[in-house]
């Protein structure tokens, strides 16, 4: 699941392999893209939107958009892709669009579902672990302003380097760092009894 080496912050080889596969054959390349980044995209989606079903929708939509974009690219453009940052940019766009759509809907707060619907395929043990470590903190992420939530999720849940987050969010690195640190500050305040 970890895409970046913690010590050196370098991209693993799989990113290059994905681009190579995409240049060779769009469909097989897509399979490689999905295999390499499925956990990254789904984790990001889940911690951004908070609901399992929404995260599945967002992940499917983002990969489908990525494929459709690739259909319109020529070989040179595909060869120059930084696949992970490019894909995550699409994920963030789909997420922001979904927020806008949601904002236009009338509020349904009284009938709101629980913050996170558990994965129906999750085992008992996994569920217990998640409840201890995940549930509460995942819910608190939803209390952060969107910019801070995005920056914290990208940096500390899926472990992207700050430079890449800046590309993905289209923000200067300094702004990304300040979103991360304010987000963490807020989370610390919320988790400290």
């Amino acid at each position: 699941m970890r895409d970046v080496d913690r010590e050196t912050g370098t991209l693993p080889e799989c990113a290059d392999l994905v681009v190579k596969a995409l240049v060779e054959d769009l469909d097989e390349g897509f399979a490689a893209l999905f295999a390499a980044y499925r956990g990254l995209v789904f984790s990001t989606a889940l911690r951004l939107c908070g609901r399992w079903a929404d995260a599945e929708d967002l992940t499917a939509e983002a990969f489908l958009r990525a494929y459709r974009a690739l259909c319109g690219y020529d070989r040179e453009r595909v060869a120059r892709l930084r696949s992970r940052a490019w894909l995550m940019t699409i994920v963030m766009n789909v997420w922001r669009n979904s927020l806008r759509t949601e904002a236009r809907r009338p509020p349904t707060t009284l009938l709101e579902e629980p913050v996170e619907t558990p994965d129906p395929h999750e085992g008992v043990e996994e569920a217990a672990v998640r409840r201890e470590t995940g549930d509460e903190l995942a819910g608190l992420l939803g209390l952060l302003p969107e910019d801070q939530r995005a920056a914290v999720v990208l940096r500390h849940v899926v472990d992207l380097p700050v430079g890449e987050i800046a590309v993905v969010l289209g923000l200067p690195q300094g702004t990304v760092k300040s979103h991360i640190s304010r987000g963490l500050q807020r989370l610390r305040a919320l988790t400290t009894p």
């Binding site: 699941m1 469909d27 897509f30 399979a31 999905f34 499925r38 956990g39 995209v41 789904f42 984790s43 889940l46 911690r47 599945e56 992940t59 499917a60 990969f63 489908l64 494929y67 994965d119 395929h121 470590t133 995940g134 903190l137 995942a138 992420l141 914290v152 500390h156 849940v157 899926v158 472990d159 963490l184 989370l187 610390r188 988790t191």
Partner: peptide, 27 residues
């Protein structure tokens, strides 16, 4: 470093794999 900061360790623990079958909705 996340090994010294429980909050960062817990955030890292929020990563998860995509459910099986999700590719079937896309491809």
């Amino acid at each position: 470093d996340s090994t010294h900061d429980p909050l960062l360790a817990r955030l890292a623990g929020l990563a998860t794999d995509a459910p099986d079958g999700l590719l079937g909705r896309i491809a």
